[in-house]
Amino acid sequence: MEKRELTCIQCPLSCRVTVSGEGDQLKFTGNQCKQGIEYARQEVTNPTRTLTTTIATAFPDFPLLPVRTAGEVPLGKIFEIMKVIRAVQVEQRLKPGDVILEIIPGTDKALIATADMCEGVSAVVVK
């Protein structure tokens, strides 16, 4: 592997951690504590992120529904996943946590709604 420089985000010190070496012979420098090694190892072997985006709905008053992956998915697959979920349209009014796709193809994670599409707190007419 080529040398890689990462910023550890486990604490405010933000150490620049340099990773070199291969397989289980990875070498770490620049980290000021052990957490930095764990972070950097994960980042160079299998970085994962929660993907948040929006999908189209059938409702003109709520045209886009914010969604996220239920858990982290591989960073390298994000664009692939975007392609899959861009094709999905929501036909029902959903609430946060409602499942849109049980399994996003190519992952083992679900796609869930993050916003409430139902009426907001209703307006009460006053005079």
Partner: peptide, 21 residues
């Protein structure tokens, strides 16, 4: 996410039956 965070507070306000304009 932002909408999920807001949802929890909106539900709390709903539970009090507050007047919202």
């Amino acid at each position: 996410t932002g909408p999920e965070y807001a949802y929890r507070d909106i539900e709390a306000v709903r539970a009090y039956g507050l007047r919202v304009l």
